[in-house]
Amino acid sequence: MSYILQTNHLTKTIDGKELVKDVSLHIKKGEIYGFLGPNGAGKTTVMKMLTNLWKPTDGSIEILGETLTPQSYEVLKRMGSIIEFPTFYGHMTGYENLKLHCEYMGYYEHGSIENALEMLDLTSAASKPVKNYSLGMKERLGIARAILCKPELLILDEPTNGLDPAGMKQIRELFHMLCREYGITIMISTHILSEIESIVDTIGVIHHGKMNKEISMREIEQMSLAYIELSVQNPEKAAYVLSEKLGLTNFKIVEDGQIRIYDNQVSTQDLSRVLALNGVSVSALAKKGETLEDYFLKLTEGGEKEC
């Protein structure tokens, strides 16, 4: 399997402090990669290294088939990025800022600026100086700039900051469209999983500068995150019945009388019948699903407890 972006044991140390340690990312061509982590986990640090703003202390980065070095400039032409908050020249208009970007990128295609402005609903604001823009408008202009030169790879650091829910939805749809129709590979970082859950193909979770897990959404779906929740009067007895009579092993007693059964082989009918036969009174029985958010929290918090 070839990857469009790959890092090998990427490490960044500043003043003896390890901001990022041993991160190995793998992003396939044409997918949307969600880069998740709580605040301060090292997302921006990794992204700064990917865009060559920071140089890694150790490890290597391969982008578009090239190993990144301090002299890698050509590869930047094929990438679009927003790192931290997008910056503009305040006294110039939105249109002029984008035009300037084209000049520096060496990209001249008629109508591309208008097109990008329209995609982000900024056509009417294009002739206003950027200093009069709202936070959300600047963020959208930043996205417009990142996609302006038709990059093959987009690296976006928390691109939905400062956007309202409607704006977020619109941006999500835009990313989805860019990925499916133009084949652009997108890497998005965020600390709010639900924002991107619906569009990502793969997620990578970083915590305390270390890569916790890299997993595709398909795998997550196959993993049985669904469980059956059981409320009983006597959990010990119920547990005995579950293991002895039904042969279940994958369950746990959560709190006062609640049992979660992760085994998806058993049906609720069987459960209630067997439990009733053995004299366990069931007060509630329900099928539940663990959300991805819970899973994500488990990954990041679990890591913390182990430490």
Partner: peptide, 14 residues
């Protein structure tokens, strides 16, 4: 200071 240099250094120019 105002980070426009970050932007400049993301361009394919030495």
């Amino acid at each position: 200071k105002n980070k426009t240099m970050n932007l400049m250094f993301s361009y394919p120019i030495k």
